[in-house]
Design a protein around this nucleic acid. Structure first.
Lengths: 127, 127
DNA sequence: GTGCTTGCAAATCGTTTGCAATAGC
DNA sequence: GCTATTGCAAACGATTTGCAAGCAC
């Protein structure tokens, strides 16, 4: 029973695959055209998507939850200058799901991320 | 100018290297013996330690900041049942600092963590 | 005495919850 | 009609901030 709002939210997530948006980002764009939308609905929808495995949650920044619809194995890079989160394709056997356990612990999720300064911000410093 | 409180907080961090405590955990043990201590002081101290690189912040859970005094390169494992965070020693070239860049981005911090069920909780299920 | 730290109370902010109205089938 | 979803307002909880009093040197 997909509601109109949930369809729009999923469409947004799909259209902005690379932006790893917050609830706020989704709300500010969608509510422009859909006055019929609240933050709570977005929280509800994303939590439902999380349970179904449609999206995953990224807690890199520590101050907000960012959502990711990319289900391929990958890591993330958070730029401390522009705040962008960039997908990183790595040769990590854990991220690729080749290992089910580590030190006797059963692995269910693998998260890898880097913090630093992204390529584009580095360019600005030089140029 | 190390104050009495900051010394006690550092001592606590050193004594509980493996527990990756929250501010709350530090407060509840220390305040038992030191009525002269507030949460704010712990936040102040840990933020100062962070800037000096004495500790690092772990934002795995998404609901709280956990602090780590272990500066050796390592990953973490978060058990979704008991909530423990366990140090994981991995052969990761990034964690070991052997790579300074990735895809043109400059790496300043490397974070790797797993979520799942820890060895001890797995045992309880069987036993 | 100067500058940093302490610690209370209040503010902040992302997220969750309670709940009555509504939509989907 | 039954169940799940919506969305407002209120609650929550971890962290930060303002600021007066206190400490280190």
């Amino acid at each position: 029973m997909p509601t109109y709002q949930r369809i729009k939210i999923l469409e947004y997530m799909d259209k902005h695959r690379d932006s790893h948006p917050t609830v706020e980002m989704i709300y500010s764009e969608l509510s422009r055209r859909l006055p019929i939308l609240s933050m709570t609905t977005i929280y509800n929808a994303l939590n439902a998507f999380l349970e179904k495995g449609l999206v995953s949650a990224i807690t890199i920044t520590g101050t907000e939850i960012r959502y990711d619809i990319n289900t391929n194995p990958h890591h993330h890079f958070l730029c401390r200058e522009c705040g962008r989160i960039i997908d990183i394709d790595v040769e990590c056997p854990f991220a690729r799901g080749k290992e089910k356990d580590i030190c006797g612990h059963r692995i269910e999720e693998v998260h890898g991320y880097f913090k630093g300064i992204c390529k584009d911000c580095l360019k600005k410093h030089k140029g």
